[in-house]
Write a protein that binds this DNA or RNA. Structure first.
Lengths: 226, 226
DNA sequence: TAGATTGTTAATCGATTAACAATC
DNA sequence: TAGATTGTTAATCGATTAACAATC
C-alpha cells in the first residue's frame, strides 16, 4: 500500500512528507486546526502566523516552520486563509475522511466514551463495540450493540475498521491487544494505564487520566512554591 | 504560602526543587511511577535504570537524569528500591495526599468521568459536581449530588478543593473558567477543546480526545506510507 | 510603491545520550 | 575483591527562535 500513496503524492504534486516529522509538530498541527476552526466560526477569513501565535501562545516562527514541513500554504503579505489551511491540515492528519472505530472494552470508561459525541465532529465514528464479558454482549448503548471480543476480526473486516479505542482494565489489556493486533488493526488509542508492547507497524496514542491529574497536581504545587 | 514550603524543604534536608523542571521530565516521572507500581505488583523489589528503561523504551541515562533532578534515590551497584522510589515520586508529584476535586460540567462527558473510578486510585477524589443546567441540579450520579455552578465558591471553601475537572461544551468554557478562577481554584484539567486564557498562577493540563485521535490517524497514515 | 508577511537559512537554546569516577 | 550500577559532567543531537530575502 505504501507505494500507491507515494505515487499519489508525486502525481498530485505534493512534497513527499519528510520521513521524520517530529511528534511535537504533529501535535501542534492539531492545535492549529482547532484554532483555525474557531477562527472560521468567528468569521475571520485570514490569519498571520503572528496573530495565530498570540492566540495559542507560540512564536510566529514556530508556526511557520511547523506548517512549512508539509508545503507552502501561506500568502506573503497576507497570511494563511483559514478555510484553506483547515483543509490542508485535515488532509495531512487524515481527518478529511471518516474513520470507523471499534471500541474494545465496554465497562465504565468504555460506555462513557460511547456517550461522548466529541469524536464524530472530527471524522471518527464508533461503529462497533466489543467486550469479553458475556453479560454485556447483546446490550445496546448509544445505538451500538456490544459484540463479543472473539468476533473482532470479522467486525474489522466487515466495517473496514483500522483504529481501536482500548478501554479495558489494566489486567485485560495484554490479551485485548493480542486480539486487536490479530484482527489487523493498525492504530490503538489506549486508555488502559499500562505499557503496551506493540509491533512497530501499529500506531499508538496513550491517554492516562490519572497521569494527567498527576501532572496537574505537580504544577499546582510548583506554583505554590514560588 | 511559598516561603512555608521552601523552609519545610530546607529543614527536611531536601534539595530545593530546581526552578525549571522540564515538563517532559515530570511527564515521564509519572510513567516511572506507573511502571514501578506494576513492578511491585509483580513482586520485584529492586530495579536498575537499564531494566526500567528497557520496559518503558527509554535510555538508562535519561531515567537516571530525570530522577536525579529531585535528589539521590538510587543505590550504586543495586539500582532503585521500587517501594522507596514510588514513595519519593508520589511525594514529588503531590499524590502522597488526597486531592479533593470538583467536576464542572455534568453532561455526557462529565457523567462519564464521574463513573470512571480510575482517578481515586492515584489520590484524586471527586467530591462535588456542578452544572449551569437547572434540569441537572439535584440529580445524584455515582453518589455525587449535582449542585449549581453559582455555588462553586462555597463548595470550594467547604471542601478544600483546589483542582477542577472542566467538562463543559466549548461555548460554555469561558464563563465556566471565570467561575472557577473566582472560586479560588488553582488547577484545571480541561476537556473542552478550546484554548483557555488563564492567570499564570493557575495550573492547566489539557486533554482533547479528538486531538488524540487525530494524532493516531496521522501515525497510522505515516506507517502505511513506508 | 510601502507595508505586511511568508518560507527558509543560520544561530541559539535545551534536552538527550555517552562516558566515567565514585560507590556499594 | 570484582561486578554492577549510580549520579554527574561533557559531548551530541534536535528543536526553537531570529533574521532576512522573496513575495504579494
Amino acid at each position: 500500500m505504501g507505494w500507491q500513496i507515494h505515487w499519489l503524492r508525486v502525481l498530485s504534486n505534493k512534497p513527499p512528507i519528510d520521513s521524520k516529522i517530529p511528534k511535537a509538530v504533529v501535535s501542534r498541527l492539531s492545535l492549529y486546526l482547532r484554532e483555525l476552526q474557531q477562527l472560521i466560526r468567528e468569521g475571520i477569513p485570514t490569519i498571520s502566523s503572528t496573530k495565530l501565535g498570540r492566540r495559542l501562545g507560540f512564536t510566529a516562527s514556530q508556526i511557520r516552520k511547523d506548517i512549512a514541513y508539509f508545503g507552502q500554504f501561506g500568502y506573503p503579505g497576507i497570511g494563511y486563509k483559514c478555510e484553506e489551511l483547515v483543509a490542508e491540515i485535515r488532509s495531512i492528519l487524515g481527518t478529511d475522511r471518516t474513520w470507523p472505530v471499534v471500541l474494545v472494552g465496554c465497562g465504565n470508561l468504555g460506555q462513557a466514551l460511547l456517550g461522548y459525541r466529541g469524536f464524530s465532529t472530527q471524522g471518527f465514528e464508533v461503529v462497533a463495540a466489543v467486550d469479553v464479558d458475556e453479560s454485556l454482549v447483546g446490550n445496546t448503548i448509544e445505538g451500538i450493540q456490544i459484540d463479543r471480543l472473539s468476533r473482532l476480526s470479522e467486525i474489522v473486516r466487515e466495517k473496514g475498521v483500522r483504529v481501536a479505542i482500548l478501554a479495558v482494565p489494566s489486567e485485560a489489556a495484554e490479551s485485548a491487544v493480542e486480539a486487536i493486533v490479530d484482527a489487523g488493526i493498525t492504530g490503538i488509542l489506549n486508555f488502559a494505564p499500562v505499557t503496551l508492547a506493540l509491533p512497530k507497524n501499529i500506531g499508538l496514542v496513550e491517554v492516562d487520566l490519572a497521569r494527567e491529574l498527576e501532572q496537574l497536581a505537580f504544577s499546582v504545587l510548583q506554583k505554590d512554591e514560588s
